[in-house]
């Protein structure tokens, strides 16, 4: 009996719940050469991996902030399948505090937009990568990040690149999750891990604990 079959026109459509991810990346002068090339490869890999995953692609919204000569909003939050893959260039100093502040401001604005539009969202993520130490004051940005993390409003992944990355400064942004040092220039392995983590999160349901894969493929354990 056709009368007993509902058509999709009689249903309502809700937007996919979003996973907001902000990459906050060091592009200071010391990243010149192989590091910036590998970082570009990693970002490209991440965007392509998400595009190939239907569920993650509908859910993930990426933003990209760089810190070097200036603090730059390279990409505002948006669907990865509509974003052009950027090519980052290295130069300048390491204004990490200003970059994290900008990322937190962008996250706040995005959450307000989601709420106003009836879009559900998951806990936002910030990936913070640096190969050195900040050249500006990070105290205010670190306090903002820590407050959000302690209130379970934010997850941050602090990653050190190379032997000169100051892990103590990274730790200031992450009261729960210890910073990890990238194994060599294994950016692609890190972004592969990140895309899998986004994929798991985008399929998680209320009450479900999302278990992220071990970071062994890209993290140098001796720094833990």
């Amino acid at each position: 009996m056709d009368d007993l079959l509902i058509s999709t026109q009689e249903l309502t459509e809700n937007p996919t719940a979003r996973v907001p991810i902000c990459l906050v990346l060091d592009v200071s002068g010391s990243m010149t050469g192989a590091p910036i090339e590998e970082l570009n490869n990693g970002v490209r890999y991440f965007m392509e991996a998400i595009r190939k995953d239907d569920i993650a692609s509908a859910a993930a919204e990426m933003a990209l902030v760089t810190f070097g000569s200036t603090v730059q909003k390279v990409l505002d939050f948006g669907s990865i399948h509509r974003q052009a893959v950027p090519t980052l260039t290295a130069g300048g100093r390491t204004p990490m505090g200003a970059a994290v502040n900008l990322a937190l401001d962008m996250l706040e604005a995005r959450k307000q937009l989601y709420s106003a539009s009836g879009v559900d969202y998951y806990q936002p993520w910030i990936v913070l990568m640096t190969d050195g130490m900040p050249t500006d004051d990070v105290e205010q940005a670190a306090a903002r990040a820590c407050q959000l993390i302690n209130n379970r409003k934010l997850t941050i992944f602090p990653i050190g690149i190379g032997p000169d990355a100051d892990m103590e400064f990274l730790k200031k942004f992450s009261p729960k999750r210890p910073p990890l040092r990238l194994k060599g220039l294994n950016f692609v392995a890190f972004f592969e891990w990140l895309s899998k983590s986004v994929s798991s999160t985008s399929q998680s349901m209320p009450g479900e604990k999302v278990t992220l894969e071990s970071p062994a493929s890209w993290a140098s354990w001796e720094t833990l």
Binding site: I6, E10, L11, T12, E13, N14, S117, G118, V119, D120
Partner: peptide, 14 residues
């Protein structure tokens, strides 16, 4: 997900 509109807080005609 199909029967309740989160933005308008209304129910589907179905």
């Amino acid at each position: 997900e199909s029967l309740y509109n989160r933005k308008s807080e209304s129910l589907a005609p179905a």
